[in-house]
């Protein structure tokens, strides 16, 4: 645990020294806020309501780019410059390494999300904001980022090239997010079993439930299982490299 905390701290600090993290973070903070505030004030008649559901509606896509950008170099860069072998010789388990890197990215995104706290605070000044869905929205976004990061780390571990890692992350996560909708387009309503399968595995289903303010134990377990599975895969890939050399 102590080793993992040390890795996490070092990795988290490394984000603040990385230009990519700043560029991705700034884009993440600017783009959704710009679109959301622009539409929030479109209605000049005063009928606009104090809620953030539209803002959280932009989050899955924004988070997709942010998480992929943050994770693309985590292992790929290590492999490219040859420091992975050195890292694997340290007296820490691959699980500790993977979890440390994951938690660092997870907390970095948490800090970025905290920086958007001014939005609900502003809304609450001018209207009767229901904080429940706001809290749910933030929780859902953070958990979604965890799922994306877990997959992004795994994608980064299977390639030497950051760009390949980024593209794999973007494509697969985009597909997974819209899996249930895509399944409906492809299969129509002829295969309810398949549609149910894609609905269950899609992060979108679980995100929308939490983001509207309903925290279901099933949704929380989904994210836990999703993250654990891809972190396990990541660990397994590293272990394999360690063994094969």
């Amino acid at each position: 645990m102590a080793e993992m905390t040390v890795i996490m701290k070092r990795e988290l600090w490394s984000f603040f020294l990385s230009p990519i993290a700043y560029v991705a973070g700034a884009a993440f903070l600017f783009v959704p806020a710009f679109f959301w505030f622009s539409t929030l004030f479109l209605n000049t008649g005063g009928a606009t309501e104090a809620h953030m559901s539209n803002f959280f509606g932009y989050m899955p896509l924004a988070m997709l780019f942010l998480a992929s950008a943050l994770t693309m170099r985590q292992w790929a860069e290590e492999r490219k410059i040859g420091t992975l072998e050195l890292l694997l010789t340290y007296p820490v388990t691959t699980t500790q390494l993977v979890t440390g890197k994951f938690l660092a990215s997870f907390f970095f995104i948490g800090i970025l999300l905290l920086m958007t706290a001014s939005y609900p605070l502003t809304l609450s000044l001018f209207g009767n904001l229901d904080w429940g869905p706001v809290i749910g929205g933030y929780l859902g976004t953070w958990l979604l980022s965890g799922a994306y990061l877990a997959f992004g780390l795994f994608a980064s571990s299977i390639t030497k090239d950051q760009i390949v890692s980024l593209i794999v992350s973007l494509v697969v996560l985009l597909f997974m997010f819209y899996a249930s909708s895509l399944a409906l387009i492809v299969f129509g309503t002829n295969h309810p079993g398949l549609i149910e399968f894609f609905t269950v595995i899609s992060p979108a289903t679980h995100f929308s439930s939490i983001a509207r303010g309903v925290v279901d134990l099933g949704d929380l377990l989904y994210y836990l299982v999703f993250c654990s599975f891809f972190l396990f895969l990541n660990s397994s890939v590293l272990e394999l490299k360690k063994r094969v050399g």
Partner: peptide
């Protein structure tokens, strides 16, 4: 195991409704 877990836990019925008016 993960897929089974996802199927089994999709409708546990344990949840907290955070909305002010308990809309859900």
């Amino acid at each position: 195991i993960c897929l089974n877990l996802l199927y089994l836990t999709r409708s546990l019925g344990v949840r907290v409704d955070l909305t002010q008016e308990k809309l859900y």
